[in-house]
Amino acid sequence: MNGEAPTRSRWTGVAAVSRAAAPAPRSARLRGRCALSVALPLAVAAYLIAVRTSGGQRWENAVLLSGGGGRLGPTAAVEHALGTLTAGSLGVAVVAVVTVGVIRRRYLLAAVAGGSVVATALAARILKGTLLTRPLLDIGHGAPVHNSLPSGHSAIAMSVAAAALLVTPAGRWRPLVGGPVLAWAVAMGACTVVAGWHRPSDVVTGNLLALGTAALAVLLLGVAGHVRAARPREDGRRRVLVVPLAVLAAVGAGAALLQAGVPGLVSTYHGGLGLACASGASTGLALLALTRGLSFGAGDG
């Protein structure tokens, strides 16, 4: 009789763990679908409003010309930051993401995370260079007339941040890695506006493209069953990332709304820059929500 109690307790504990782990793949699938259902319509709306209307083009051209192409020339630091994102550095980032997954013996995770970065870069190039067009609706400002949506810099930087969140173990490491990479991704998007390389909608759609590919990655891992629930204490430290991102999103969105509602209060340039920053910070928050409480690649090895 005395030996039965520990055995029963042991099996009860195993069953509890199994029940707790079972919803994790379903949660990943649900989150992936929800993120896709948000990212895709928002990206389409941004394109239709900013590119396919004369008012959208007029406002964004004013932002573009007041950046690096106008009175507010880019600083050397901004130009240097943008110059660090090249084909070579993209390759290094993909190799780093895949290497972390392989070291952890999470081989499907390594392939999915690395593939999501490559897919984002290819999708941005195809969308910008082939599929999407920019009609000439705003004439006389001297702004470039070619399509620049989505921003490859924004899309790639945010997809690298998303992949880093996926392959990093849940716990103290994910917030430590997530903080710097998300800050870098948001900064890259803002720098393209400061330098006059991109319009705000380019950054918005680039971030949404990265969110969409990250959602597909989470959905795929959930379908494959390579997701488990992280322990509650493993995920608590990420709260320190939420506050600064939420503040930046609120301040950026506030600047854009004030510029639209009271044009003389906030300059067009700062309204556009605020929108780009709000987009990056909001995407960062969405990525944190997408990965919260989940450990990926748990079914491998």
Rank of each mutant, 00 (worst) to 15 (best):
P6M: 11
T7L: 10
R10G: 14
W11G: 06
W11S: 07
T12L: 09
G13F: 13
V14M: 08
A16G: 03
V17H: 14
S18T: 14
A21K: 08
A21D: 15
A22N: 06
A24C: 14
P25L: 09
G32Q: 12
C34D: 07
A35Q: 08
L40K: 04
P41S: 13
A43H: 04
A45H: 15
A45W: 14
Y47F: 15
V51G: 06
G56S: 11
Q57F: 12
N61V: 07
V63P: 00
L64W: 02
L72F: 00
G73D: 04
A76L: 03
A77W: 13
E79F: 00
H80E: 11
L82A: 03
T84I: 02
L85M: 02
G88H: 06
A93H: 10
V94T: 03
T99M: 10
V102G: 13
V102L: 15
R104V: 13
Y107F: 11
L109D: 00
A110R: 02
A111E: 02
A111W: 06
V112N: 06
V117E: 03
V118A: 10
V118P: 11
A119W: 07
A124Y: 07
I126V: 15
L127D: 07
T130V: 15
L131H: 12
L132Y: 03
G140F: 01
A143K: 10
V145F: 06
N147D: 09
P150W: 02
P150Q: 07
H153N: 05
S154Y: 04
A155W: 04
S159L: 10
V160L: 08
A162E: 09
A164H: 01
V167A: 11
P169S: 03
A170W: 13
A170M: 09
R174E: 04
R174P: 10
L176D: 07
V181F: 09
A183W: 06
W184C: 08
A187F: 11
A187V: 04
G189K: 14
C191G: 09
G196T: 01
P200M: 10
D202K: 01
A210Y: 01
L211H: 05
G212C: 11
T213W: 15
H226P: 10
V227E: 12
A229I: 12
A229C: 11
A230T: 03
E234G: 14
G236V: 04
R237W: 15
L241P: 05
L241G: 07
V243Q: 04
P244R: 01
P244T: 01
L248E: 08
G252Y: 00
A255S: 14
A255C: 15
Q259P: 04
A260F: 11
G261S: 15
V266A: 05
S267Y: 00
H270E: 13
G271D: 01
L273A: 02
L273C: 09
C277E: 03
A278N: 11
A278H: 03
S282Q: 04
G284A: 10
L285I: 06
L287I: 00
L287K: 13
R292E: 07
S295Y: 15
G297V: 13
G299K: 14
G299M: 07
G301M: 05
G301T: 08
